[in-house]
């Protein structure tokens, strides 16, 4: 394993463990909801996920390729529909990937 990959994995893995385990010991659920730290922690997670979604979709949206845009719409629509139906991140993710793949297959002569 290359050192830079190992270092990245160890730091991120340690941070993940801290985020998951330490609030259970530090009684973070008792932090006043209007404290600056609570606000920052509360906003950073949604901001990160929103940023990552926009960044991952941006290459698709910037593409002038209309079949790719149709595949994107199919994938996004499937994720929203599946999540609304069963409230599961895994099922919604798989549904979106399947819908994108099927749309790609249907449009493959022109995609």
């Amino acid at each position: 394993m290359r050192p830079e990959i190992l270092i990245m994995a160890l730091v991120v893995g340690l941070a993940n463990w801290c985020f998951r385990a330490l609030p259970l010991r530090a009684r973070l659920h008792e932090l006043p909801p209007d404290s600056p730290l609570a606000r920052f922690l509360g906003a950073t997670g949604p901001a990160a996920i929103g940023t990552l979604f926009v960044a991952s979709v941006l290459p698709y949206a910037r593409s002038a390729d209309s079949p790719r845009a149709i595949c994107l719409l199919a994938g996004v629509g499937a994720v929203i529909a599946a999540f609304a139906a069963c409230r599961s991140v895994v099922v919604a993710t798989l549904s979106g990937a399947v819908a994108y793949g099927v749309a790609f297959w249907l449009l493959s002569p022109v995609a």
Binding site: G45, P46, V79, T93
Partner: peptide, 30 residues
Amino acid sequence: AGLGFMLPALFLALLLSILSRAQLPVLAVA
């Protein structure tokens, strides 16, 4: 192609799982 879309699909699903009216300004600015 479907596997390649797994990442945007995962992020969108995670986004939907935490979505609330109070977080809309944060998401819009981000």
